[in-house]
Design a protein around this nucleic acid. Structure first.
Lengths: 208, 208
DNA sequence: CCGTTGCGGAGCGCTGCGCTCCGTTATAGG
DNA sequence: CCTATAACGGAGCGCAGCGCTCCGCAACGG
């Protein structure tokens, strides 16, 4: 797998780069300077641009990786014995690595076919996860899978300044509140119609 | 009050400007170009810079106004007969005009004495409002006034792209979920310690 | 009729970005 | 041990887009 010497360093750098890119883009937004990513990864600009010919290419790779990670988390969540714990764990994980922050890169970058496919897989799994929780009576019945995705997105939204421990902790507290609000009974009905899937997908451009 | 001719136009422009600034800054962030505000207000750059000598001055004025508006809303909320409805209305209003989005301008601009005073007034009122709801048993007892402020801030956080009707509607749905989570009984306890007031204030710089 | 007042917006200077290029350094082969 | 090579870090180029200024012009007042 891993070779020696300079080539090993190259392989390591690639991982460092992707992780740094995730941290920087999800906490500072997509217009964060590429140099910030290189610095965070402890890597020169040269090494970065040898692997990704452009900033957009890096972003595409990153989005795809994030989507695949979401799919993984969804599969684990569906494997969980308790429907509610599965759903809650999924939401917490996604907010944890801020998958939602990469969602609305919409319009900024071109969407590859592979990204579309992975996105659809994720949507399908999320729908099953939500349906399972609702059928088990663990979830209020006026909330849709899309609502859950948008909740993740709202809680992934970056705050100004560095992402301190304090901020992460606050986010966990607030998320705990929101998750309690997702649980079932006696809740006040949600206002207006459920968000439409076409609007949600439309932000990414038109499907192929 | 309002004079005639050119002077009336000047007065009108001032209101247009402040409203446009609020919309642009809260939806696009503080590094939005000043020209965007002028365009949104339907006003030339000259008129803007005649009233506010610098972008920072405009931001300061805007923050102060937002804080005063929050104080107004808090007073109305405290006057509401039902403690829970008062609190919920306050949160909905603040998220409605996105007062929280101006909060973390921290460090970007200098904080005037008047801003500090208004901020303290708001904090005091918010604490009373939250205490009243908790004493009435309408609010889970592990949530603090600071948690509520941070919840408003999280939901005020701007999404990329223009602030469409669809987005506003989604935000209302998600907020309804979170508000249900704030209500009392049988909720899972919030993780970790409550956020500290000194950390919260510290983001604005050191008090005078 | 002209003086005055406030108007819009073109453009200046500059910051800070994406990206390139090159001198330097670590490794592999003879 | 020495040289050829591969990958490295980061200074700097060209440019986009910002804050802000300045000026020609339109609308009023006397």
């Amino acid at each position: 797998m891993s070779r020696r010497g300079r080539q090993a360093e190259a392989a390591r750098n690639d991982l460092l780069l992707l992780e740094a890119a995730r941290e920087v883009f999800t906490t500072q937004g997509f217009d964060a300077p590429v140099s910030a990513i290189a610095r965070r990864a402890g890597v020169g600009m040269g090494s970065l641009y040898r692997r990704y010919r452009t900033k957009e290419e890096l972003l595409q790779r990153l989005c795809l990786l994030a989507m695949e990670r979401v799919v993984e988390v969804l599969e684990e969540a569906l494997a969980a014995p308790d429907p509610w714990e599965g759903l809650a764990g999924y939401v917490r994980s996604c907010v944890g690595f801020r998958s939602g922050a990469l969602g609305p890169v919409a319009g900024t970058i071109a969407v590859t076919d592979e990204m579309w496919r992975t996105s659809r897989t994720a949507t399908g799994l999320a729908e099953r996860l939500v349906a399972r929780a609702r059928d088990a009576g663990a979830l209020r019945d006026d909330v849709t899978a899309l609502d859950v995705s948008l909740l993740i997105e709202q809680f992934s939204r970056p705050a100004p300044g560095p992402d301190s421990d304090e901020q992460r902790h606050v986010r966990q507290r607030l998320l705990a509140i929101a998750l309690d609000g997702l649980r079932a009974p006696g809740a006040t009905p949600l206002p207006g119609p459920a968000p439409s899937a076409t609007w949600y997908e439309g932000r990414w451009g038109t499907p192929p």
